[in-house]
Simulated assay, not measured.
Amino acid sequence: MPDQRDVKVCPVCGRPFHNRKKWSSRGQWDQIVYCSRRCRGAAVRTPGSSR
């Protein structure tokens, strides 16, 4: 079972998502913000987003 520190909440859909082996092995977990490509794309299209 993953630790609580390995869980983030997607700012677009509000779903929690866990650290993946691919992200942790590459040291990318701190840079991951969105749970999926779909949410990342929706955040770019949303007016008033931080990006």
Results as ranks from 00 to 15, higher is better:
residue 28 Q to T: 01
residue 19 N to D: 06
residue 15 R to N: 08
residue 41 G to N: 14
residue 10 C to F: 10
residue 50 S to E: 13
residue 45 R to M: 05
residue 10 C to R: 05
residue 16 P to H: 02
residue 26 R to N: 09
residue 14 G to S: 03
residue 44 V to F: 12
residue 2 P to G: 06
residue 20 R to M: 02
residue 34 Y to S: 07
residue 39 C to Q: 10
residue 39 C to M: 13
residue 37 R to G: 12
residue 38 R to P: 05
residue 26 R to F: 01
residue 19 N to H: 02
residue 23 W to I: 02
residue 23 W to K: 00
residue 21 K to E: 06
residue 32 I to V: 15
residue 26 R to L: 12
residue 13 C to Q: 02
residue 28 Q to K: 03
residue 13 C to I: 05
residue 26 R to K: 11
residue 14 G to Y: 00
residue 1 M to E: 07
residue 25 S to C: 03
residue 24 S to W: 07
residue 32 I to A: 04
residue 4 Q to F: 02
residue 27 G to P: 12
residue 28 Q to D: 06
residue 3 D to R: 10
residue 12 V to E: 15
residue 38 R to T: 15
residue 27 G to T: 09
residue 22 K to I: 04
residue 17 F to I: 01
residue 30 D to N: 12
residue 15 R to D: 08
residue 19 N to I: 13
residue 12 V to I: 14
residue 13 C to A: 04
residue 7 V to T: 08
residue 48 G to K: 06
residue 10 C to K: 06
residue 18 H to G: 04
residue 38 R to C: 13
residue 21 K to A: 08
residue 7 V to M: 08
residue 16 P to V: 01
residue 7 V to A: 07
residue 35 C to H: 06
residue 39 C to S: 13
residue 25 S to V: 05
residue 19 N to F: 01
residue 18 H to R: 11
residue 40 R to H: 11
residue 27 G to F: 05
residue 31 Q to W: 14
residue 49 S to T: 11
residue 49 S to M: 13
residue 14 G to L: 03
residue 3 D to I: 02
residue 42 A to P: 00
residue 12 V to L: 11
residue 21 K to V: 09
residue 8 K to Y: 03
residue 17 F to Q: 00
residue 34 Y to T: 14
residue 2 P to N: 11
residue 11 P to C: 12
residue 3 D to Y: 07
residue 5 R to S: 13
residue 7 V to L: 12
residue 29 W to N: 03
residue 14 G to R: 00
residue 17 F to G: 00
residue 31 Q to S: 15
residue 10 C to N: 08
residue 29 W to Y: 08
residue 51 R to E: 04
residue 49 S to P: 09
residue 16 P to L: 00
residue 1 M to I: 07
residue 9 V to C: 04
residue 21 K to H: 03
residue 22 K to Q: 08
residue 50 S to L: 12
residue 26 R to G: 03
residue 42 A to H: 05
residue 5 R to I: 07
residue 49 S to C: 13
residue 46 T to M: 13
residue 6 D to Q: 10
residue 11 P to F: 05
residue 43 A to Y: 13
residue 21 K to D: 06
residue 36 S to M: 08
residue 49 S to I: 04
residue 14 G to K: 00
residue 44 V to C: 04
residue 6 D to K: 03
residue 6 D to A: 11
residue 43 A to W: 14
residue 38 R to E: 15
residue 44 V to G: 05
residue 15 R to A: 09
residue 40 R to K: 14
residue 41 G to T: 10
residue 35 C to S: 11
residue 35 C to V: 12
residue 9 V to F: 02
residue 29 W to A: 05
residue 28 Q to E: 09
residue 23 W to Q: 08
residue 42 A to M: 14
residue 44 V to S: 10
residue 3 D to H: 08
residue 9 V to N: 04
residue 8 K to S: 04
residue 39 C to G: 12
residue 30 D to V: 11
residue 8 K to F: 04
residue 41 G to C: 10
residue 25 S to P: 00
residue 39 C to A: 14
residue 3 D to W: 06
residue 34 Y to W: 15
residue 34 Y to F: 15
residue 37 R to K: 13
residue 28 Q to A: 04
residue 9 V to L: 03
residue 22 K to D: 09
residue 44 V to N: 10
residue 41 G to D: 11
residue 50 S to M: 11
residue 48 G to F: 03
residue 13 C to F: 00
residue 14 G to E: 02
residue 28 Q to P: 00
residue 46 T to L: 05
residue 2 P to L: 07
residue 5 R to F: 02
residue 13 C to E: 01
residue 38 R to S: 15
residue 9 V to Y: 02
